[in-house]
Amino acid sequence: MLIAILSLTLLGSLLGLGLGVAAKKFHVEGDPLTAEIEALMPGSNCGQCGFPGCPGAAAAIADGSAPVTVCPPGGKALAQALAAKLGISIDLGEVADQGPQIAAVAEEICIGCCRCIKVCPTDAILGAAKQIHNVIREACTGCGNCIDRCPTEAMTMQPVPVTLQHWIWPKPEMVGA
């Protein structure tokens, strides 16, 4: 018993040490710009941009093969931040942005099939079989994966409801507009 534990511990630490040394020796300098862009992205790896997750999209944006407007959940705010980071100017009018949206369940038609729960990348949908589901607003990134999965069209994208945390003072109305 003791010798088994000791030998496995020794083996594990030796291999770990070896790999640690190898990691230092074969270290590849990543593109610092890619890392900075990745930090700005939503990070939910929803895949709506067509790249393998946010790291893939960040690499594509960094080498210029993807526009800064590639991220639908990020919307205008992210496009603006990325454009500022990369020092390019973009036409924000092109970005179809209805303001941030999150998923919502229409409780009268939800049949409790659990399909939307399985595709949610952030585990934002709460529910069990034959129980009406609900969306945890703080966790939903608005990737829209669940919309197509719902057999009864009970999942819809809704504008983020105004709460005390979100409310902003409305802009003054233009006189004579």
Binding site: L15, G18, L19, A22, A23, F26, V28
Partner: peptide, 11 residues
């Protein structure tokens, strides 16, 4: 461990 090592070398 070997695969990790190969991955580092290939990268």
């Amino acid at each position: 461990a070997t695969v990790q090592f190969v991955e580092m070398v290939v990268k």
